Amino acid sequence: MKKTTTRLADGRELIYYDARDDAVRDAVDRRPLEPVATAAEIRHDRLLGDSVAIASHRQGRTYHPPADECPLCPSRDGRLSEIPAADYDVVVFENRFPSLAGDSGRCEVVCFTSDHDASFADLTDGHAALVLEAWTDRTAELSQLPGVQQVFCFENRGAEIGVTLGHPHGQIYAYPFTTPRTQRMLDTLAAHRQRTGGNLFDELLAEERADGRRIILDGDHWTAFVPYAAHWPYEVHLYPKRRVPDLLALDDEARTEFPQIYLEVLRRFDRIFVGRGGGKGGAEGTGAAPTPYIAAWHQAPVHAADRAEFALHLELFTIRRTPGKLKFLAGSESGMNVFINDVPPEAAAERLREVASES
C-alpha cells in the first residue's frame, strides 16, 4: 500500500491509498473554495448522561446530486470534485460538512472506489483489503489527536437509510467521548467479569459457535452470525476468533481472511430478498435498489483502562424486513429503546445461509 497525503483548496486533508507502490498523486484541487466554517458543538444531556452533537451548518450539505455531479467521483472531463485526481483506489478526506469538528472531534469520508455505480460488495478481495488498511491507518492517526476518545468506522448504504450521496463510501467519526453504546458494553463486560471472572465477548462467541443455528460463516479466523437477541430483521455480527481491541491489533492471517468473509456476507445481504415478491430484475426481484444497510465497526475506546477486554467486531444490519417493507423505529424503539424484531434470528440466519454464493 502507498499512502499520499495532500490538501484540498479549503485546507482540508485528503489521503490517497493506492495498491501500487509507484502511484503518483500530484493533482491539485483547482476549485475556488473558501475555508470551511463549522458550528459543531457537543452538548451533554444531564438526565440521560449522553452527548448530542449540534451541527447547524450541515443543513446546507449536498443532497442527492445527479450522478454527473457527484462530489465523490474523480475530477475528470472538466468537472472538479472533492477528489482532484482523475482516478483513485481508496480516498479519505475531511468531511466538508462535519458533525464533529475542532475540539468536538473530527469526521472523515472514505471513498471505497472511484466507480460510482459499484458497491462494497463489488470490490475484489485485494481492494477490500486496501479499504481495511485505510480504516486501520485512520484509526491509528485519529487515535493520536488530542481529545479523541473513540474512533468509529462505518458505512451507510441506501436511500432508505438516509444516504444523500449514492457513490460507494463510508465515514469515520473521531469522538471526544466514549459513545453511550460502547460505554454500556464496557459496563456490562466489567460486571460480568466481576461476577464470573470470564470475558463476556469470548463466552458469547463460543456459545454461538457451539449452538450453530445462527452461524452464517465460520472461517479460520472470523465468525459471522446472527446474534441470539438480534435487534434488526437481518443483523449479522462479524468477530475475529482471536479477541483484539481494535483494527490495529488484527494479525496478518485475520487481515487476509477478512475480505473473503465480509464480501460474502455483503453479497448475501444483496440476495436475501431475491425471489420474494416478484420476478428477477433487482435485489428484491422487483427492480428495487439493493438491500440498504449499516455496517459499523466497534472498537475499544482509545484510553479505556480495560480496553484489552473489549472485542473488536463489525455489526451489519438492514432496516428492510421483507420486500417492500421497512423496519421503522416506532414508539417502543424510539421512545424507550426497547426493540421489537419481527424476524426470528434463527429464521434470518437460515435465509442468509440459503443465499450463499455458488462455489
Score class of each variant (00 low, 15 high):
38 T>G: 01
38 T>H: 01
40 A>G: 15
41 E>Y: 08
42 I>P: 01
42 I>A: 04
43 R>Q: 12
43 R>E: 08
44 H>K: 06
45 D>W: 02
46 R>H: 11
46 R>T: 11
47 L>V: 15
47 L>D: 05
47 L>I: 14
47 L>T: 11
47 L>M: 12
48 L>C: 06
48 L>P: 02
49 G>C: 08
49 G>L: 07
49 G>N: 06
50 D>H: 11
50 D>A: 07
51 S>K: 12
51 S>M: 07
51 S>F: 13
52 V>P: 01
53 A>V: 12
53 A>H: 07
53 A>M: 11
53 A>I: 04
53 A>S: 15
53 A>P: 08
54 I>P: 02
54 I>K: 09
54 I>G: 03
54 I>R: 11
54 I>A: 14
55 A>P: 10
55 A>Y: 14
55 A>L: 10
56 S>V: 15
57 H>L: 12
57 H>N: 13
58 R>A: 02
58 R>G: 02
58 R>Q: 04
58 R>M: 02
58 R>N: 03
59 Q>I: 14
60 G>K: 10
61 R>M: 12
61 R>G: 09
61 R>W: 11
62 T>G: 00
63 Y>M: 13
63 Y>F: 15
63 Y>T: 12
64 H>D: 09
64 H>Q: 08
64 H>N: 09
65 P>E: 10
65 P>Q: 10
66 P>A: 03
66 P>I: 03
67 A>I: 10
67 A>Q: 08
68 D>R: 12
68 D>L: 11
68 D>V: 10
69 E>D: 07
69 E>P: 00
70 C>E: 01
70 C>K: 01
70 C>P: 00
70 C>R: 00
70 C>A: 04
71 P>L: 09
71 P>I: 07
72 L>D: 05
72 L>Y: 11
72 L>N: 02
73 C>W: 00
74 P>Q: 09
74 P>I: 04
74 P>A: 06
75 S>H: 00
76 R>D: 03
76 R>M: 06
76 R>W: 04
77 D>H: 14
78 G>Y: 05
79 R>P: 00
79 R>F: 13
79 R>G: 00
79 R>Q: 06
80 L>N: 01
80 L>R: 14
80 L>Y: 02
80 L>H: 10
80 L>V: 02
80 L>F: 04
80 L>T: 01
81 S>E: 11
81 S>H: 11
81 S>G: 10
81 S>R: 08
82 E>Q: 11
82 E>P: 02
82 E>D: 15
83 I>H: 02
83 I>F: 05
83 I>V: 15
83 I>S: 03
84 P>S: 10
84 P>W: 02
85 A>M: 10
85 A>F: 09
85 A>Q: 14
